Each structure stands twice: as C-alpha cells, then as structure tokens.
Amino acid sequence: MLPAAFSTPVSLATVLPSSLAALSGERNDLGLPALDHVVVVVVDGLGAAALRARAGHARALAPLLGKATTIDAGFPTTTAAALTTLTTGTSPGRHGMVGYRVRDDAGRLTNQLSGWDDLMPPESWQRSRTVFEDAAAQGVHARAIGLPKYEGSGFTAAVLRGAEFTGGRTMQDRFDLGAEVLRTSGPALTYLYVAELDQLAHARGWESPEWTAALETLDSLVAAFVRGLGPRQAVLLTADHGIVDVPESGHVLFDTAPSLLEGVAAIAGEPRFLHLYAEQPEQVDRIAGRWREVEGDRSWVATRAEAIAAGWFGPVIDAEVGPRIGDVLVAARKRIAYYDSRDAARTGRTMIGQHGSLTPEETRVPLLRFGAAA
C-alpha cells in the first residue's frame, strides 16, 4: 500500500491562510486569535526529527516541540513544491510545482528553482494565487524577507508575488529586518526565510557540528526576536521539509541495472524522488513493474495514476498539471539516493543531507508558536 501525503488536517498549506485570517479577526484552522502582526519564520530543512535529536542545542525551540506542534509538509518534500504550498495554501496538484526538476510544456527537463524563462514563465506556471496577493487585496501589508540574491528571481516571482521583498545577507540581518517590521503599524503579514540550515545539511549533513552550530544561532536569534513581541503580535516557526543524511554507500547507481532504463525517455526529480518519463504510454506499467521488482524493498514505486489516487500531490484537476508528473515515480524509503553513474559531472553526489521523499523524517516539520499565538 502506498503512503498518503497531507495525512493530517493541519499542514503547511494551512499556515499562511490562517495567519491572514487572524489579521482580520476571523476563525482559522490554527485557532489563532485576532492579531495585528504575524511573522512566519520558515527554516529551510528543519525537520521535526532533527530538531528533536538536537534538542539540547535549541533551548528556545525544542521545549515547544510535541505531537501537537508538528505538521505535514506535504509532498514532494522539496523546496520548490513545499514553499509554494506554504505561500499559496494549495497543494502541488493545484499550484503545479510538482517537483524539483520536471518536464515542462516544451518537453525539457527544467529546474523549478532556477530554470525560469519565457517557455516556463513564473506568473503562469505557478497556477495558484498567493496568500500575499490576498493580503494586499485586504489592505494587509505583506512582506517577504530573504536572501538578497533571490530578489527578482523567477522562483520569487512565482511563489512570493504580492509581497514586498527585502534582502538580508545573514540570519541576523533577516531577524533585524523582522524586528523593524514589528515596530510598524499593522495589520502586517511577514514571511522570514532562513536558508542556512538546509545549505549546511546538503554540504555537511544535519548530524554535523556545522549544522548544530547553525541551529544554535537560529535558536538564540528566535529567542531574542520573540522577546520583542507586542500584545497582538505573533511568530509562527515552521519548515518546508526535513532532511535525511545519506552516506555515499547509500548511493544507488540505477544505470548499472539496464532493465530499469528500458522504455524510459527521461529521468527528472531529485535523488530521493525520481520522475520517470516513458517513451510510450503503453510502457508505463512495465517500467513500474521492473522498478518494483528491483527497488521495491527500499522505495515506493507508483505510476502517475496510482500516486494521484493515493493523494501524493493533493487533487490534480487541471489538465496542464498532470503531464508534469512523471509517468512512474520512485520515492526512497531507506537511507538511499538515486544517481546515474554516466553523469560525468557527478551532479549532486557530494550532497550528504537530502530530501524529497515520503518518510516521516522528511515530511514532518515543526509548527512552533510564540507571542499572542502561543
């Protein structure tokens, strides 16, 4: 049986819509009270399991982590899809960001973070209205605080449209900018993005001393930040996905099993979640069968139709979204990552921390409340 994504009523998709509703004093899925300011801190890659494992290094964050303060990030657990789910309040089957690298309308394999161009315009490829656009229409000041290099990027245009973007080079810079926002009059909704833990996890692994040091920095910054909250101000801290450390011994070179490539025209996705595109529709079931036979003990293998029926992407209604999803999907459930040894550049094989699949380590993320939301 295939696992389900979005398995709980409260997920990453409910965070920003509930925050906006609270700014109007409306009832919301998170049960937030009426507020003037909400700052949503998004820590890229901070899974609930990793935070729990390093609880002694997060004295402000970890004590708040319990069963009631973890949520589903949804699927796939990749930044392009998950951040879009957060900022639109919709699932990938609706917003169309169904993976890290997918086949676009021109038949190209395109990176959803950096591959934007006239053939994949952000304003139409990402199909959902953002919560920031809704906020602006309601007279709520919507802001996004992130790394300066992301200002003006295609991905920012796709997922943060409607928000006023401000860049801060360091973690400290971004929290300082957030503190300035809290000194302005409301109502205001602010997204504050922390990239550093995900970057270090990829390079060193979340079990590394460098990752732990970054967690300590984050913890101290959050503790100082929330001490400055006013009576109708709140901070929600969450993440887009968790992380699994995969040693080189866990690299699976799929091209060394030639049968796995029979009938496969292209392979996209990312190492823990592959999208396989078939040469011909009639080959799909045979491709899925071969992958199940070889890899079924350590990965979930599903056809597109099976994955949609299992709710992996949420409802897939628009005809334009379905073909973006691979004909066959391979989601790792062990500590493995899939690579092609024919790739001379060894793309990605230096990464230690990885994500994209359906394991709890990747899908379960914190939702911590501070200030008036606590």
Rank of each mutant, 00 (worst) to 15 (best):
H251T: 12
V226I: 05
Y193T: 07
A163R: 00
F132K: 05
K149L: 13
Y193W: 08
A142E: 00
G230A: 10
L189M: 09
K149H: 11
D245C: 04
A136W: 02
I145T: 01
V244A: 05
A137C: 05
Q138R: 15
Q199M: 13
A144F: 11
R232I: 05
A179E: 14
G168I: 06
H141L: 14
G186F: 05
R169T: 12
V159G: 09
D245Q: 09
A137Q: 06
F165P: 03
D219G: 01
T212V: 15
V246Y: 03
R183N: 05
G146E: 02
T190W: 02
F175P: 08
D245E: 08
T238W: 02
T156G: 06
L237D: 03
T170E: 09
T238A: 10
L160W: 10
A135M: 00
L197Y: 09
G152V: 11
A137I: 00
W211Q: 00
E164Y: 06
E151M: 12
V159P: 02
M171K: 08
V181W: 06
I243R: 04
G178V: 11
A135G: 01
E180I: 12
T212D: 14
R174D: 01
L200Y: 05
V226S: 11
F155N: 03
D245P: 03
L253P: 05
L182N: 02
E180M: 13
F155H: 07
G154Y: 07
F155D: 06
Q233H: 08
G154Q: 09
L200A: 12
L147H: 14
G162K: 04
P231M: 04
E248Q: 11
Q138T: 11
V140R: 00
P148H: 01
L147G: 07
G154V: 00
T217Y: 05
L189F: 04
G146T: 12
D198I: 10
P247V: 04
Q233P: 09
Q172W: 02
L218V: 07
V246C: 04
V226T: 15
Q233T: 10
A142P: 01
D134Y: 06
L236C: 01
A144G: 08
E133V: 06
L182E: 08
M171F: 04
V222P: 09
Q199W: 03
A137V: 06
S153G: 07
V226Q: 12
D198N: 01
H251F: 14
R183F: 04
A214S: 11
G152I: 08
Y193A: 10
K149Y: 14
D219I: 06
G154A: 04
V181Y: 00
A203H: 11
R204Y: 13
H141C: 12
E180H: 13
E180S: 14
L197V: 15
L182G: 10
H141Q: 13
R204S: 12
L215G: 01
E164T: 15
A179I: 06
E207A: 13
T156I: 10
I243M: 15
L218A: 02
R227I: 04
T238R: 02
T238E: 01
Q138P: 07
I145R: 00
A213G: 09
R174T: 05
P247E: 05
L221A: 13
A136V: 13
T184C: 11
A224L: 02
W206H: 14
I145S: 02
P209R: 03
A135W: 00
L182C: 07
G167M: 09
T217I: 05
